[in-house]
Design a protein around this nucleic acid. Structure first.
Length: 185
DNA sequence: TGCCCGCCGGGTG
DNA sequence: CACCCGGCGGGCA
C-alpha cells in the first residue's frame, strides 16, 4: 500500500468553479502535499489524508490552496522550493528526489519528455522516470503536467490525461487531439 | 497507428 | 532474491 506519514498536518482548501483544491502543511509550516482538484471538498481532503491520516482542517493556508488553483487555471505564479517540506514528504529514494527536482525546473508554458528528464539525470531510466513522477506529492506546483511522451503525445497523469491537457492548454500550449501541435513526429 | 517487447527503479514476500 | 508493476520508447507490421 501507499506509504503513510503519521505526523499531524493541517489542511486548507479553496473552491473555484466547482473544483475543490486542497493543500497539506506540516508542523514546520511547509507544504507537505497538494491534492489535484476534486469535485467535492471531502474528496480533495482525502487526496491528502490517504498519505497523512493525522490531520486537522483550517483556513490557515487557504491562500496557498488558492495559489494552486491560480496555477491550475493558467497563471504563472512564482514560488520558492523552500515552501515545500520535501524531507517529510512521501518522496523516499534519491532517484525520486532527483526526478522531482529536475521537473521543478521546467518553466511555465514549456514541456520536456520523460526521456529528456532521464537524460538530464545521466540515465536511461525513462520508464522509471514516469513512475517517479506519478508519485509527485506536489502536483501543479512541481509541474509534472509539463512532462510528456517523446512521440508528442501528452501521456498519462494522476488526475487523468484530460486534466493534464487542460492545464497545459491553460498555460498556452497548443494541443490537438492529445498531441502537441508542433510535435515533429 | 497500434502492439509488443525491452528497459529501469521500487515494492513485496 | 525473484518476481511484478508502472504517467515510457522505439521498431515493425
Amino acid at each position: 500500500m501507499n506509504k503513510k506519514n503519521n505526523k499531524p498536518i493541517t489542511i486548507s482548501t479553496h473552491k473555484k468553479d466547482n473544483l475543490y483544491f486542497a493543500v497539506g502543511y506540516s508542523e514546520k509550516r511547509k507544504i507537505i502535499r497538494i491534492a489535484l482538484p476534486q469535485k467535492s471538498k471531502e474528496e480533495a481532503i482525502f487526496e491528502i489524508t490517504k498519505y497523512h491520516p493525522k490531520f486537522s482542517v483550517s483556513d490557515q493556508y487557504s491562500d496557498t490552496a488558492e495559489m494552486i488553483s491560480n496555477i491550475y487555471h493558467g497563471r504563472d505564479v512564482k514560488f520558492n522550493i523552500k515552501m515545500l517540506d520535501i524531507g517529510e514528504s512521501t518522496i523516499n529514494t534519491p532517484f525520486e528526489m532527483d526526478v522531482i527536482l529536475e521537473v521543478a525546473k521546467i518553466p511555465y508554458g514549456s514541456v520536456k519528455t520523460y526521456k529528456e528528464i532521464a537524460k538530464l539525470l545521466d540515465s536511461h531510466a525513462y520508464r522509471a522516470v514516469g513512475t517517479a513522477i506519478g508519485k509527485n506529492p506536489f502536483p501543479i506546483l512541481i509541474p509534472c503536467h509539463r512532462v510528456i511522451r517523446s512521440d508528442g503525445k501528452i501521456g498519462e497523469f494522476r488526475g487523468g490525461t484530460p486534466m493534464k491537457v487542460e492545464i497545459l492548454k491553460n498555460e498556452g500550449i497548443k494541443i490537438d487531439d492529445l498531441k502537441l501541435r508542433f510535435s515533429k513526429k
